[in-house]
Design a protein around this nucleic acid. Structure first.
Lengths: 208, 208
DNA sequence: AAGAATATCTGCACTCAGTGCAGAATTGCA
DNA sequence: TGCAATTCTGCACTGAGTGCAGATATTCTT
């Protein structure tokens, strides 16, 4: 064995493989029978584990769809860290949105698309998603306020991040109403960023 | 009988009484044993109905805490309808927030306080609450855009309403961190309105 | 390499939310 | 009073999720 690998121990590698098998099985079943039409017993069987074991990987059925680390928060945080003198707070948020679209393959993955579709249709999934979004909102607002202590108080920071995410959600809502919107995720992302930037234009610094 | 009453028929009055008995029993039990420590069977027993009957009044345990008609959306819609020539969209939203605080006893009711506390602590309740908020957000944005078709497109309206609700949530978050914040709901509401108005100042029209 | 220590897997029995159904009880109406 | 429509309720069921205890697999020690 190569003990120099990142996740060396046999245990960890095995566990990671099983985790992935569960996600793959679940995504496949969700596609074919829908979210509510798929039981955890079904997923466990397809992933060749005991039903009980599922819960030692994911605390609930929804958790399956939401990877622990949110790339969007990370993008926002690093965009804030990388600010240049002329940037306004709103500039940084739009920058973060662009960064996510450029770099991350994550947003266009089959899982991400499935998640988006299920958030539209399954209340339990939407509920969990919104909760995660609120947490993200608060965390980004915290960082933003820390970066602009003279310009923003805590409530203003929340308002700005709320405006940003409100614009993102609003844009998604509008864009997803077009049939076939999910066929070309890159294009969707581009249009979303443009719409969000337009909505936030008053808050963006002129010199950009 | 008086057939001229609003909800005349015996059936309807009885049903309303039972509904209220369920809510009262539930609130009492939630206070005493917590949300998750109270089963629907407990509530049904305390309200003197069969367990099965609970579900002919409320679709789920969470539904109990969220009255169907949201006073805040109504306030926003009527504030929008009552706009005066000089008002900016943001003016109307802050006006709606004031109206709710003034008129409605609803926000300071024991149920509302309990709901607020449970939203902080119980994931399932928070999830449902956020979902309702998103619906409210979308509906208010629709009305706002209809009232200002020349100034706002759909995404901008979402952004503005997102800013507004983001400010409200942010203010709540900040204010609720102070211990005993819930002791004086009127004061809390006043401070919240002031913080939100301050955060939205750039959006408000100068002539106010 | 053997065995102890530790982490993981899994079946079993359980609680609770929520649903479908069918019959009993209640109310409305002629 | 008697018939129709609603509402109530018990029963049996599914599915999510938990606690526990024993079986299995991995890692560490010597």
């Amino acid at each position: 064995m190569l003990p120099t690998m990142a996740d060396s121990s046999l245990r960890e590698r095995k566990r990671e493989r099983t985790r992935q098998a569960i996600v793959d099985a679940a995504v496949d079943l969700f596609e074919r029978h829908g979210y509510e039409g798929t039981t955890i017993a079904d997923i466990a069987e397809a992933a060749e584990i005991g039903t009980r074991t599922f819960f030692s990987y994911f605390a609930s059925k929804e958790e399956l769809l939401f990877p622990e680390s949110d790339a969007r928060v990370a993008a926002a945080v690093s965009a804030i860290a990388a600010r240049k003198p002329g940037d306004s707070p709103a500039d940084l948020l739009v920058q973060a949105l662009s960064d996510v679209n450029e770099h991350s393959t994550e947003m266009a993955s089959p899982t991400a698309l499935l998640r988006m579709r299920l958030m539209q249709t399954v209340p339990a999934v939407r509920g969990r998603g919104l909760q995660i979004q609120l947490d993200a909102q608060l965390e980004i607002a915290r960082h933003l306020q820390a970066a602009f202590p003279d310009d923003l108080d805590a409530v203003q920071a929340s308002a700005l991040v709320g405006a940003f995410l409100g614009a993102v959600m609003g844009a998604l809502q509008v864009l997803l109403e077009e049939p076939g919107a999910l066929d070309d995720p890159r294009k969707l992302q581009r249009r979303m960023r443009d719409a969000v930037a337009a909505a936030l234009r008053p808050w963006l610094s002129a010199a950009r």
